[in-house]
Amino acid sequence: MKVLVCVKQTFDTEAKIELKDGKIADAGINLIINPYDEVAVEGGIQLKEKKVVDEVVVLSAGSDKAMDAIRTALAMGADRGILVKQDTSADEYARAVALAAAIKEENPDIILAGHVAADDGSSQVPTRIAEILGLPHINVITEIEVAGGKATCTCEADGGTLVAEVALPAVISSQVSWNEPRYPSMKGIMQAKKKPVTTADAAAADNKVTIIEYAMPPAKQAGIKMEDEPEVCATKLAEWMKNTVKVEV
């Protein structure tokens, strides 16, 4: 069996976001694997360690810079990589089309990805890939059991926890609480340099969503900040909550 993990290169979640010439400024920003995808990479590697699968392929669509994200996944323990060159302005539809085309060539048994990207926050791409490929999908998993051509997944759901089963091949998206991604070892980093990465051009697809403009959220003004005895502070805070916020107890 083969697992393929989709990874997106995103800004570090600690990055401060600023606009320059009406666009999101990317100068000097540290790029990482989307944290949700990183969990999917770890999940894929663990499936190999448990001998559920025998190969972990990592796939990214993006600019040449995304090669770093692929190398990081290889250093963690993935076996080989595929970079689909695509303009980073591609929307969820165009990205799903490009990724699905590359996945079809690979014919994996399990396709993993983070359920959402920390940059655009869309949570669409894994589900769109499944629809394009005509495969079942399960989103937001926190556990997986693979046996008998099926994956049984525990998922974070609205107001509870869900257990659902799908026949493989399937697209499965991860929640960050699934696992704790490993740091690449020095040996892993050295090995990653020799692991094969192929590149391809993205399948053509036009965006379905047009970005009109970017803006910064309205700046929040700092209000009252009091330093006094805790009891005095608490009394004032209670008054503010009752009179200004109008909380009811």
């Binding site: 920390a118 655009d120 969503v209 009109i212 970017y214 803006a215 910064m216 959220p217």
Partner: peptide, 13 residues
């Protein structure tokens, strides 16, 4: 909201 609310994008569908 993008970047979890650190910026906003106005989009047309």
């Amino acid at each position: 909201a993008i970047y979890a609310g650190k910026a906003l994008a106005k989009v047309e569908v």
